[in-house]
Design a protein around this nucleic acid. Sequence first.
DNA 1: GGCATGTGTATTTTT
DNA 2: TACACATGCC
Length: 714
Amino acid sequence: MTTWLDDLNDAQREAATFGGGPLLIIAGAGTGKTKTLACRVAHLIGQGVRPERILLLTFTRRAAAEMIGRAQKLCGAAETGKVWGGTFHAVANRLLRIYGDALSIPKTFTVMDQGDAADLMNLIRTEQGVAKKERRFPKKMTLVKIYSHTVNAQNPLEKVLAEYFPWCREDIEGIKPIFRDYTERKAAHHLMDYDDLLLYWDALCHAGGVGETVADRFEHVLVDEYQDTNIVQASILRGMRKRFENITVVGDDAQSIYSFRSATIRNILDFPEQFSGATTVTLERNYRSTMPILGAANAVMDQAKERYTKQLWSDRESGERPALYHCQDEAEQTGLVCSRILDDFEREIPLHQQAVLFRTGHHSADLEIELTRRNIPFHKFGGLKFIEASHIKDTLAVLRIIENPYDAISWFRVLQLLEGIGPKTAQRIMGGLGVMRVPDSGGATAVGAAGGSAIPLPLRALLLSPSPVPHGAKDAIQQLRETVADCTGVKILKKMKKGTEVTELSTADEPPIAVQLERVGEFLRPIIERIYDNYIVRLRDVEQLAQIAARFRSRGRFITDLTLDPPSATSDLAQPPHLDDDFLNLSTIHSAKGCEWSVVHILHAADGMIPSDMAVGDSAGVDEERRLLYVAMTRAKNQLYLYFPQRYYHAKYRRGDRHGFAQISRFLTKKVRRGMEERIGDSHDEDESRHRASEVDAESVRKGINRLWGEEAT
DNA sequence: GGCATGTGTATTTTT
DNA sequence: TACACATGCC
């Protein structure tokens, strides 16, 4: 028997060495889920399963890489890296590029992120003129959300509107044709949104013939974070398991926090029915947190009406109780967090063992400023991403029209960057180039089979002919033309034939991708300087993008990888990573999933923040916010701090006054707080906060006095 | 008609 | 901050 199995407890070992057939592992927070799954992979390989016949579906690429790495260490097999690991979306992309032919999907399809989807939605929305009606029509983002909900939950539009978007119910007749057009256009322009990746994978594995081929590629399928999968994903798994019944899913219903992405808890609850003969193993022993932390987290979850009963326990009895700080306002919260972090750092807890968690990306804005001021280095996960910045999208759009010249969204974006070209002219030009014309053979091979030498139609048209361009934009178009030519290795030759000038194209090898990006950067520089305020930073970002690109073999891989697995922190881009650097972690709670730290700080434990007042409309929303707090609390190993700023200057609370008083999060009930140590965040530790305290106005002084005999803001 | 520019406003979470 | 919408300019 392999010795590493001795490290596992009984339940973990049962799961890791389970023979075959469907297996459901209910794994509470910190119960060694990753370890168990990694051991299972190692065990399977040890049993002679070929690594490339194992499919490991995780929530992020990072999680897959970590598990495969751990498995490799355990079983020592060099080829462990051949395990297919990644997110559902990334795996779908990989399979569709191999087997897409069967569904007439062109190999060079472009993956759209949510922003791209919104752009396309907006284009159609404007064209159909629905926006002009007297009623306010749903905005592009709302349309994308409605669409995504509809297809991901496989729910009729009417129901989705009634249930999640009741204020858009009357617009249903306007929405229908937009969605129809949206679907058609994606096909015509070789575009796939995130939902398509799943839908086509589902179609692929349920198709006769090719479906068996795809499914038989894998002997074992393992799925992590199963509580956050949706109906389509469950269907994919059924399709993938028509012959081999070997499927393992791991999850925790108490940590389901992605219902906004149509994840349904039913998948995990109904697993035994969907895969008959399933064995269930429950992991209840928590190895992560001290008992006081676990007790507080359990007390939060005890408020939930419906839940899978499992009692997490830990033998880590010692340790402080979680602390709840009542602060005057956000400034005091910021000061306290900084002091605590530095204190712990002094006590030799490195920064990377500490994390600050919050509900939404901008909740950390004030803290980020202060951290920067005090020279405390940090990485931020979640929130606005590098890739979503408009100048980065501009850069990628140029690459994308070269990669997939039928990508109308990217053309539309790029053309409008040129001075003198707005939406109308852009569309006219696109018409002239033939971007809107679907290649005749209908897709499967039209672009792919053309091979390296032939230039796809729209590019050819751009390089050769002066399509209808307003005079003012002639120069700009010429710049674009030269950029595209340089990036594709095409030479534009002007020759005289029979007295008239003829333009010819000669193809050569494409320059390396780093060179292409440099060229695109050159093209964009004057544009970025013209249209954006803080262009210096943005230009630097574009340069940084070129650095990342250099790591990729092909332009296509680079573009797809960036949309499917965007760098989650700006610092992911720093290259090469300095391992000895110590960074504090800032993260949205969603992005903190699966992580753990010695010390965790949770900001803004106020009603309206956690739970977010966007989510308190129905009880399901409130339940999910509660689970969110639970996830945040259970990230902590040794110390947990929560902060409740009582006063907000936010406009939302403004009612004739400059500020408003908040209420403490409804989840921090008396019972929960009994397990915590409540502290008034005053100025015992630092000059800084003493200084702040002296600035408070009379009202907060009275407030502060009241707090001394326990009266709370209500 | 179509584009550039200015003003007001609403902002969750992510593949 | 980025977007939607309105106005003014060519």
